[in-house]
Lab assay of single mutants.
Amino acid sequence: QEEEKEIKRLAKKFNASEEEARRAWKKAGGDPETAEKILKKKG
């Protein structure tokens, strides 16, 4: 599933848990760029 792959990639890229990545993904409405910004800010 595309979403799961994206979440795993985000978690790995930002050294975050999949739970954090999933939360960022949901907050971003499934937009990878926005999710990255959220995780970057958090990191």
Rank of each mutant, 00 (worst) to 15 (best):
W25A: 01
A16I: 15
D31H: 09
K41C: 13
E36G: 09
G43I: 14
A35M: 06
K41F: 15
K27W: 12
T34A: 13
G43L: 15
E19R: 07
E19S: 07
E18L: 15
W25H: 03
F14D: 00
G43E: 11
K37M: 12
E2T: 10
L10V: 02
A11R: 06
K40M: 15
K12A: 13
K5D: 12
A35F: 04
A35C: 08
A16C: 15
E3G: 07
K13W: 06
T34R: 13
N15W: 06
E3I: 12
E20S: 07
A11W: 03
K26N: 13
E36L: 04
W25C: 04
A11E: 03
N15S: 08
K37R: 12
E20D: 10
R9W: 06
T34E: 14
Q1E: 12
W25E: 01
P32G: 05
K8D: 05
L10A: 01
F14M: 09
E33S: 10
K27R: 07
K13H: 05
A28L: 00
P32W: 13
E3K: 06
R9L: 07
K13N: 04
G43M: 15
P32E: 05
I7R: 01
K37G: 07
K8V: 08
A11T: 04
G29D: 08
F14Q: 02
G43S: 12
T34S: 08
A11G: 03
K37H: 09
G30K: 06
N15K: 10
L39F: 03
G30Y: 04
E6M: 13
E6G: 05
G29V: 05
L39I: 04
A21S: 04
E6A: 12
I38D: 03
D31Q: 05
K42T: 13
E19H: 06
F14K: 01
E19F: 07
K42A: 13
A35G: 00
A21C: 11
E18R: 05
Q1A: 13
R9G: 03
E20N: 04
K8Y: 08
K27S: 11
K26T: 11
K27E: 15
E36V: 05
K12L: 13
A24C: 03
A16Q: 06
K41Y: 15
A16Y: 04
L10F: 03
K37F: 08
K13A: 07
A28C: 04
P32K: 10
Q1S: 13
K8I: 10
W25Y: 11
E19N: 06
L10D: 00
R22G: 03
I7T: 02
A16H: 04
T34P: 01
E4P: 03
I38Y: 10
E6L: 12
R22N: 03
A16T: 15
G29C: 15
E18W: 10
A24F: 02
A28R: 01
K27L: 15
S17A: 04
E20V: 07
K12W: 08
R23I: 12
A28E: 00
L39T: 01
K37W: 09
T34G: 10
E20P: 00
E2C: 12
S17M: 04
I38T: 03
E36H: 05
E36S: 08
L10W: 02
E20Q: 07
D31F: 03
D31W: 03
N15L: 06
R22E: 06
E3F: 11
R9E: 06
G29P: 02
S17F: 03
E2H: 10
N15R: 09
R23Y: 14
S17K: 04
K13T: 06
I38P: 00
K8H: 08
E33M: 12
G29W: 05
I38A: 03
K13M: 13
K8M: 13
K27P: 01
G29A: 09
K8Q: 12
K40D: 10
E20M: 06
K42W: 15
G30S: 04
S17P: 06
A16K: 08
P32F: 11
R22T: 06
E6Y: 12
E6I: 12
S17L: 04
G43K: 13
Q1I: 13
K13Y: 06
L10S: 00
A21E: 00
A28M: 00
E19I: 06
W25N: 02
K42M: 15
P32Q: 08
E36I: 07
I38E: 05
T34I: 15
A21N: 00
R22H: 05
A35L: 04
K26E: 15
I7P: 01
Q1L: 13
P32D: 03
W25G: 01
K27N: 10
E6K: 06
I7H: 02
K40R: 14
A24K: 01
W25Q: 02
G30A: 06
A16P: 00
F14R: 02
K27A: 14
K27V: 10
I38N: 03
K27F: 10
K37P: 01
A24M: 02
Q1P: 14
N15Q: 09
A24R: 01
R23G: 07
E33V: 12
E33C: 14
K13G: 02
K41P: 07
E20R: 05
K5S: 11
K26P: 01
K26F: 14
R9V: 05
G29S: 06
E4N: 08
A21V: 13
A24D: 00
T34V: 14
E18Y: 15
Q1V: 12
E36N: 03
K40F: 12
K13F: 06
E18D: 08
G43W: 15
K27Q: 15
T34Y: 10
I38H: 04
K42H: 12
E36K: 05
K26Y: 14
G30E: 03
I38K: 02
K37Y: 09
A11N: 00
D31G: 01
E19L: 06
K40E: 14
E2R: 09
E2F: 12
F14T: 03
L39Q: 00
T34N: 07
D31I: 08
N15P: 01
K37T: 08
I7K: 01
S17I: 03
N15E: 05
A28H: 01
G29M: 09
A11F: 02
E3R: 07
D31T: 03
D31K: 05
E20L: 06
Q1K: 12
E33T: 09
K12E: 08
K37E: 12
G30P: 01
K5A: 12
A11I: 08
R9M: 07
W25I: 05
K37I: 09
E3P: 06
E36M: 08
E6V: 09
P32T: 11
D31M: 04
K41G: 14
K42E: 14
K5I: 12
E3L: 08
A21Q: 01
K12F: 09
K13R: 08
A21P: 00
F14V: 03
E18C: 11
A24V: 05
A11Y: 02
E2I: 09
A28P: 00
P32H: 07
F14P: 00
E33D: 10
E18T: 08
E20W: 06
K40T: 11
D31P: 01
G43F: 15
A16N: 03
A35H: 00
E18V: 13
K5V: 11
A28V: 02
E33Y: 13
T34H: 08
I38M: 07
E36Q: 05
A28S: 09
F14I: 02
A28K: 00
E33P: 06
E36T: 05
K40P: 02
S17N: 05
R23D: 15
R23S: 10
E36R: 05
K13D: 04
I38G: 02
Q1H: 11
Q1N: 13
E33I: 13
G29K: 11
W25D: 00
T34W: 11
R23M: 13
L39R: 01
A24L: 02
E18M: 14
R23N: 13
E20C: 12
G29L: 10
A35V: 07
L10C: 01
G29F: 08
L10E: 00
A11L: 04
E3A: 11
E6C: 09
R9N: 06
E36C: 07
I7M: 04
L10N: 00
E19Q: 08
P32Y: 09
W25M: 10
R9S: 05
D31N: 11
R23F: 11
K40V: 08
K40I: 10
I7V: 08
L39D: 00
E2N: 11
K12P: 00
K42L: 15
G30F: 04
N15C: 14
K42G: 14
K5M: 14
F14H: 06
K26I: 14
K8E: 08
K41E: 14
E2W: 15
L39V: 02
K41Q: 13
K13Q: 08
K40Y: 12
E2D: 14
K27H: 10
E4H: 07
I38S: 03
A11P: 00
K12I: 11
L39N: 00
K42Q: 14
E20F: 04
R9T: 05
A24G: 00
Q1R: 10
E19T: 06
A28F: 01
G30W: 03
E33A: 13
K42I: 14
G43Y: 15
A11S: 06
I38L: 11
W25P: 01
K42C: 14
E18Q: 08
E19A: 10
A35W: 02
